[in-house]
Design a protein around this nucleic acid. Structure first.
Length: 429
RNA sequence: CGGAGUAUAGCUCAGCCUGGUAGAGCACAGCCUUCGGGAGGCUGGGGUCGGAGGUUCAAAUCCUCUUACUCCGACCA
């Protein structure tokens, strides 16, 4: 992709409305454009990141047998009256009317619709267990939207719903989702901290939040430092709590092992038994022909929030530092002196060779060197290949690692060889 | 919903106190010179001063009302 053709309106000005790093950087790098309070357009740079996050989430959901669907964003209120949540959800629910004056709402979550689909088609224990998931837009009319997309009103969320025949099955599903979430967040370059949580509006009695560590997080976390080094299977048994639930007096973890940090909630899982299956009459017949109500759980990952959370946990004073797994491009190719034929020939050779193998953002704009270097750092691709007049005479280009800031000079052939053989290490390990 | 603030060009802001009919930098368009950390010169385009009402010969500026946005608190992926 040519930088000059790519719609990424970057800016060096710090936006007046933004306070936290991720919001400032998302605006400055041209990822988002605000339309109203807590409502944002997502521009191409952000969409590329979001799609990579979605792909990883989908792979991990598929791995545990969850099946992708799309529920509807606009729903009749009757479903919510059945579950009893139409009144209890309150003003956070955006209510709408159609032309016939029927009452609808823009879905903030989908327990009701998942249960409705289930009850229409599953009548036998043989249909269990089953788990749906989707990645779709939600709207919650937050009292106070803030921090850019971190607490937006419209947001992209992966939400999943499971149906099991009994508690043992539901617990097994819950644990599978738990492990799947840990794996998902790690693949996104994050360190997840699972903490026991209240189940809030979802109802139920078993719940975990997944927090990631970031200085600007909204929650304060206390956790056993073992949590940072443990295997996935042990994670659920290690202590972690948010400040609302933490009590120094009853905490079992010794003072020297207890860590405290700010965190951002990026996922939340709930087991809530038969709350919705009973209220909405979703039952199946067991082997004896008796009615049983499935044990349910629901599982959420804030996809659009993750984009901001990743930036919060990975940036520096010059811009974003994308983890390789979600970077919008694998590398930025900077032709510092596009009027120097030697530079342009070298840059285009790399660009053409990488086509189909690497996702390259090629900056051959006729702007100042400083602007190109600043934009490359701001937009934060893991690697930069920098071609300029001062080195190309010796047949050399520079390979810069965005995270370590290490710059290595190497020949054109070597830099092509490294990326084409998928070894990005400057030491050619 | 309580508290605090902001609203003037695409962006960041000045002008307001002390009314006299709108500015800078960046961005944008053209030409030229440049080029290793957001370049320089010349020229040009761009604003119902958030909205409504009021005071006044005259309102971006003073008064009243209103809307939007941001921040702090209670709620949440």
């Amino acid at each position: 992709m040519l930088f000059s053709n790519f719609f990424a309106p970057t800016s060096k000005d710090v936006p007046a409305n933004a306070e936290i790093a991720s919001h400032v950087l998302m605006l400055r790098s041209g990822m988002i454009s605000q339309t109203a309070s807590g409502i944002y357009c997502w521009l191409p740079l952000a969409v590329r990141v979001m799609e990579k996050i979605e792909k990883i989430i989908c792979e991990e959901q598929d791995r545990i047998g969850a099946q992708k669907v799309y529920f509807t964003t606009v729903q009749p209120v009757s479903l919510w009256i059945e579950s009893g949540r139409y009144d209890s959800y309150g003003k956070e629910m955006l209510r709408l009317k159609d032309r016939k004056d029927n009452d609808f709402l823009y879905s903030p979550t989908n327990e009701e619709q998942a249960t409705d689909v289930f009850r229409k088609y599953v009548k036998s224990y043989r249909g269990l267990p089953v788990m749906f998931y989707q990645i779709h837009w939600k709207f919650r009319d937050e009292i106070r939207p803030r921090f850019g997309v971190m607490r937006g009103r419209e947001f992209l969320m992966k939400d999943g719903y499971s149906f099991d025949i009994d508690f043992a099955g539901a617990k097994k599903t819950y644990d599978a989702v738990f492990r799947s979430y840990v794996r998902t967040f790690r693949r996104l370059g994050l360190t997840p901290i699972p903490v026991q949580a209240d189940s809030g509006a979802m109802g139920g009695n078993m719940s975990h939040e997944f927090q990631i560590l970031a200085a600007t997080g909204e929650s304060t976390l206390y956790y056993d430092k073992k949590l940072l080094t443990t295997s996935d299977d042990e994670l659920m048994t290690i202590f972690a709590a948010t400040d609302e639930k933490f009590d120094h007096k009853t905490c079992q973890v010794s003072e020297k092992d207890l860590m405290s940090s700010k965190g951002i909630e990026v996922g939340h899982i709930f087991y809530f038994g038969t709350k919705y299956s009973k209220s909405m009459g979703a039952f199946v017949l067991n082997k004896n022909g008796e009615k049983i109500y499935p044990e349910m759980g629901s599982y959420g990952i804030g996809v659009s929030r993750l984009v901001a959370a990743i930036i919060e946990s990975s940036h520096d004073d010059r811009g974003i530092i994308w983890p390789e797994s979600v970077a919008p491009f694998d590398l930025t190719l900077l032709n510092l002196h596009p009027r120097d034929d030697r530079c342009t020939i070298a840059a285009e050779k790399i660009y053409e060779t990488f086509c189909g193998h690497q996702e390259v953002l090629y900056d051959n704009r006729d702007v100042s060197v400083g602007e190109k270097l600043a934009d490359a750092d701001l937009m934060g691709m893991p690697w930069q290949i920098i071609i300029g007049s001062s080195n190309i005479g010796d047949g050399l280009v520079e390979l810069k690692n965005r995270k370590t800031k290490e710059i290595v000079k190497m020949s054109l052939e070597n830099v092509i060889g490294k990326f084409m053989s998928k070894c990005y290490c400057p030491q050619n390990c």
